[in-house]
Amino acid sequence: MVDKPAPDATRRSEKSRRAIYAAALALVAEVGYPKTTVEAIAARAGVGKQTIYRWWSSKADVLLEAFLDLAGQTAQAAGQEPYTIPDTGDLAADLKAVLRATVDELCDPRFEAPARALTAEGVVNEQVGREFVTKLLEPQLQLYVARLRSAQDTGDVRADVDPRIALELFVSPLAQRWLQRTAPISYAYTDTLVDYALYGLAPR
């Protein structure tokens, strides 16, 4: 009798995790956050509900982790390191590069639909909004803070500038235009935001 190799629990767990990520993001995009349930995610992923609760405490945790994973995959597909801002010594070029990558991400249908659903829910659901900011948004904004502080160290940004406020000069307009669909977002748009933020509006 030939001994069969034992099932690889690691591979099985990773396959289930990926299926759960995909199911959660698809559901929230299709039916919205309120109608997305752990039971529905489990059914769509083909796993038991207890599997989800073994790894996450709530559907919000599942969705936020799935979101972070998707963002990382999007960055890697574009040949970039996820959750980093380059420091080449050219602040304008570095900011333009990361904002162009953000445009790609926001225009990707896989990312856009669940992002809009979670953002909308965060406006009316304080807990979801707080987790969205704490786990997803703020860590990304702190990368801009670190890059701007590095630029202060080299004299490329004034020492008295508050990096946390300064980053909003280019991040916030992009977010507002994307959320409200007041106009298309593009590389040209984000490049211009960086130029205006770094060089001002007054004649040079």
Rank of each mutant, 00 (worst) to 15 (best):
L141E: 14
K35H: 11
L118V: 12
A75V: 03
A40Y: 09
S186N: 15
K49W: 06
A29R: 02
A43D: 09
T74A: 05
I41D: 06
T154I: 05
P139M: 08
Y199K: 06
F132D: 08
P34S: 10
L63I: 08
A175L: 09
L99A: 01
D94T: 09
W178D: 03
P34Q: 15
T51Q: 06
T10F: 14
A77S: 12
T102F: 02
E105F: 12
V194F: 03
L91I: 06
Y33N: 05
P163T: 07
Y33M: 10
F67H: 04
D3G: 12
D61M: 11
P5I: 12
R177K: 03
L70P: 01
V128H: 05
T182I: 09
L64F: 13
A22L: 04
Y196P: 01
R147M: 03
L143D: 02
L198R: 04
V62H: 02
A6G: 11
K135M: 15
D108N: 15
R12Y: 12
E138H: 15
A202Q: 13
P109I: 14
E39P: 10
L99Q: 00
P82A: 00
A66R: 00
R44D: 04
L63D: 02
A117D: 07
V133F: 09
S186D: 04
A29L: 08
S58V: 05
S172M: 10
V28D: 01
D3W: 14
G155C: 07
Q176M: 15
P163Q: 08
S57V: 06
R158N: 02
D3Q: 11
K35L: 13
D8V: 13
L106Q: 04
L201Y: 10
L25W: 03
W55Q: 05
T102G: 01
V145N: 13
R11M: 14
T154G: 08
Y53A: 13
L143I: 04
L179N: 03
P184H: 11
F132H: 13
L27M: 03
G79K: 10
I185V: 10
T154R: 09
G72M: 00
T88R: 05
L143E: 02
L106T: 02
V28H: 01
A24W: 02
E65W: 01
L141D: 08
V161D: 09
A93R: 00
V2F: 09
R11N: 14
G200H: 07
A151W: 02
S57T: 13
